[in-house]
Amino acid sequence: MVSTHFTLPENITPISTEADPLKLAGDLRTLCKKALDMGAAGAAVLSPGDLCFSDGKILEKMMQTDFPSIHWPLDYPIDDLKNTLFEYKKGIFVYIDADPDMPDYGGGPIISPEHMAAYRKIHEIVSAVEAAAFYLGYYLAMGFAAGNCRSIFCAGETQCNAAGRGKGCIAPYKGRPSLTAAGIDTRETARKVHLSHLNTERLFLSGLVMVA
């Protein structure tokens, strides 16, 4: 998903092999500001060690969905996502407030247009932050959002095309795995990164962009 809010940096510079902690710190602030400018209620820098992983019961519950997709439950058997996340040093956790009356859709269809707009919003913020990070030279930046991408981008389809052998995603570059599907406990992670204003007892939708 390419955000309409997105503008390319004026000077795209060649990729550097030098790790510059000062530049990274400045760029993370810039990316947090971008998320907030796009409507995030909060954004915080985190390290992989701040990510709280769910117990297996949640993932087991996801396996029982009647609305499966390549990202719900996350289905990449020959690659280890958790280990991969720990290859990063820094990322950005973002959230938007959700309707307090929003039901737990799990991976199923999202009935309310208002709720659908919220899920799309968190995807849009994550996409824009990830793209901004990419053009700043963090070409391995990787974003996660909320909800089952099939419910959000392919609700009218009878199945997830990407889940079939030899078939691709019909909404490429849009859908991202949810944090939950990646095995991350969003509520505990939000508590750990001390986002001001976030009441973790209330409903929220969260996203994550691992940057560098």
Binding site: I70, Y76, M142, R165, K167, G168, P172
Partner: peptide, 19 residues
Amino acid sequence: IDPRVRFKCMVPKCYMSGR
């Protein structure tokens, strides 16, 4: 060699991922 490189083909999904 970095596992993140492979994952970048899948998250978000490239149009050719899986095809």
